[in-house]
Each structure stands twice: as structure tokens, then as C-alpha cells.
């Protein structure tokens, strides 16, 4: 832990980062930007895991490992998402999320 910084400050930073990511997910129409927003969200969650591990249960490394696993999942998710985006681009000639609405009523 860092002397002089309370846990709340870390949590506030990760919270803001999380909701910035959520706002980006809802606002932006470009699929790649949305993907980046998702990365932001995942990253903020990662910070949370690590912080809780560090401040509350420093005798174990559970949060640390969880964060590593999340990084792995983020990598997998990014690769599949980008494959999908490229495929969508081939079909639609753009990657706007409004146009990906085949699965409506």
C-alpha cells in the first residue's frame, strides 16, 4: 500500500474510469471506439481487484491473479471482437453500431 493515500481515492479513480467507459459505450457509434470503451471498463475493474488485494487482503494474491486472468480474457475478447468488426466492415462497408441491427424484432 502507499502510505498516505486512503483506499477511497483509488476506488474513486476506478469508478470514474468505469463510468467514463460506460458513457463511451453508450454514446459512440463507431464499433472500435466502443471496443476501446470496453477496455476502459475492464481496466478499471482490474484496478479494483488489485487495490482490494493490496489494501484489504495483502497476505494473499487472489486479486492479483484475478486481474491477470482478466487481462487474458480481455485479449481473447479483443481478438474476437476485431475479427467480427472486420467481417462487419466487409459486409456493410462501415462499422457503425446502428447498422448492426439484424437481430431486431
Amino acid at each position: 500500500m502507499i502510505e498516505g493515500i486512503p483506499i477511497q481515492h483509488f476506488l474513486i479513480v476506478s469508478t470514474l474510469m468505469f463510468f467514463i467507459g460506460v458513457a463511451g459505450f453508450i454514446m459512440r457509434r463507431n464499433l472500435i471506439t466502443i471496443l476501446m470503451a470496453i477496455e476502459l471498463i475492464l481496466n478499471s475493474v482490474n484496478i479494483n481487484f488489485v487495490i482490494f488485494n493490496r489494501y484489504l487482503y495483502p497476505d494473499q494474491l487472489q486479486g492479483h491473479f484475478f486481474a491477470i486472468l482478466v487481462v487474458g480474457i480481455a485479449a481473447a475478447e479483443a481478438s474476437v471482437a476485431i475479427a467480427l468488426i472486420i467481417n462487419i466492415y466487409r459486409k456493410l462497408k462501415n462499422i457503425d453500431v446502428e447498422n448492426v441491427n439484424e437481430l431486431r424484432y
Binding site: 485479449a75 476485431i82 475479427a83
Partner: peptide
């Protein structure tokens, strides 16, 4: 990760 890699190749 392996599955995602194969999936990505198949999709793209």
C-alpha cells in the same frame, strides 16, 4: 485463448 484465436480466424 486458443478458442478465441481459432474463432477469430474463422470469423475474419
Amino acid at each position: 485463448l486458443l478458442a478465441a484465436m481459432i474463432g477469430a480466424i474463422v470469423i475474419a
